[in-house]
């Protein structure tokens, strides 16, 4: 039994990969993404927190890129290359966890709003719509300012302000799935709320969720860097805090273009990669979009 299911899953996976491979941009995004995540994971094997230390830095201040320092140094003589590498850990961590939080809230509320009809579902939708109109960046800034700027509050601030679009998407999908006849049958056979949502609805919304998570990570990384830039900082070196410092120490007026360019390009590359992967996933997994394309 299990081997049959496993074989079927394997077949589905290989078919999926065959479809995905045809999206060249998606494959390119995936390559960048895997590289970025691997680099972030292996960073502690080579460097540590000391690369961000002002005291231990030995380099020249605002040194332009050279053979020794391929991406130049910052206002304290720290290596931009090493800081971008080390900072990728914070940026990616916050990006992933904030997206995860946002998706989990959106999934739970979306499924609930779609599954429970009547006033409960309507009330949930009303709350979702209310959160949807809130200007998310402004709200996230307020949250971060009130709760203090630790890594976890930044994650919370992003998660709390970005879940409504996911919830709407999931609700629509839930409604579509529950309109299918076998759900009716399952209910008639005595399937409870938990059974129906976890056994029937979840497997059907999962593919959509994968694509939307990917896109969510992209926007969470941008939001994290923006929050950090606007001073709601996690105090740990991330790409956003580096750019904040470049602004504070007048890198633009000093002509230290590398200080501005390199961390920004890192953000851009990772965000583009996530976006491309997300779009490719959407095109492969969402048959409606596929037909339209």
């Amino acid at each position: 039994m299990t081997s049959v299911a496993a074989a079927r899953r394997k077949l589905a996976l290989s078919r999926f990969w065959g479809e995905y491979r045809r999206h060249r941009a998606g494959v390119a995004g995936l390559v960048i993404l895997v590289a970025a995540v691997l680099l972030a994971l292996i960073a502690p094997l080579f460097i540590g927190d000391e690369v961000t230390s002002v005291v231990e830095s030995v380099g020249e201040k605002f040194a332009p890129p050279s053979l020794g320092e391929p991406f130049g140094t910052d206002e304290s003589g720290r290596s931009i290359l090493l800081m971008v590498w080390w900072g990728s850990r914070t940026s990616l961590l916050i990006g992933f966890l904030a997206a995860l939080l946002s998706i989990v809230i959106g999934l739970v509320l979306g499924v609930a709003a779609g599954h429970f009809r009547g006033w409960a579902g309507a009330a949930l939708m009303r709350v979702t719509d209310w959160f949807l109109v809130l200007p998310s960046l402004v709200t996230a800034l307020v949250l971060a300012a009130i709760l203090g700027g630790s890594t976890w509050t930044i994650i919370m601030a992003i998660g709390i302000t970005t879940w409504p679009s996911t919830a709407r998407l999931i609700r629509a999908q839930t409604l579509a799935v529950e309109a299918r006849p076998y759900i009716e049958r399952s209910k008639a056979l005595g399937g409870g709320h938990w059974h129906i949502t976890t056994r029937h609805v979840l497997p059907n919304v999962a593919p959509l969720l994968l694509a939307s998570t990917t896109l969510e990570v992209a926007s969470a990384i941008v939001t994290e860097s923006t929050l950090a830039f606007l001073g709601a900082s996690s105090n740990r070196t991330s790409w956003g805090t580096m750019l904040r410092a470049s602004y504070d120490f007048g890198a633009a007026t000093q002509g230290a273009w590398w200080y501005i360019l390199i961390p920004g390009l890192a953000i851009l590359a990772v965000v583009m990669a996530f976006t491309l992967v997300g779009r490719a996933l959407e095109a492969v997994l969402n048959p409606r979009l596929r037909r339209a394309a």
Partner: peptide
């Protein structure tokens, strides 16, 4: 897609550097 992925503040910094301060 490129512009959508660019953080606003970074683009602002770049434009400021290139057209405000000047490069080289």
């Amino acid at each position: 897609l490129l512009l959508w992925s660019v953080p606003t503040f970074w683009l602002g910094l770049l434009l400021m550097m290139v057209f405000g301060v000047g490069v080289g």
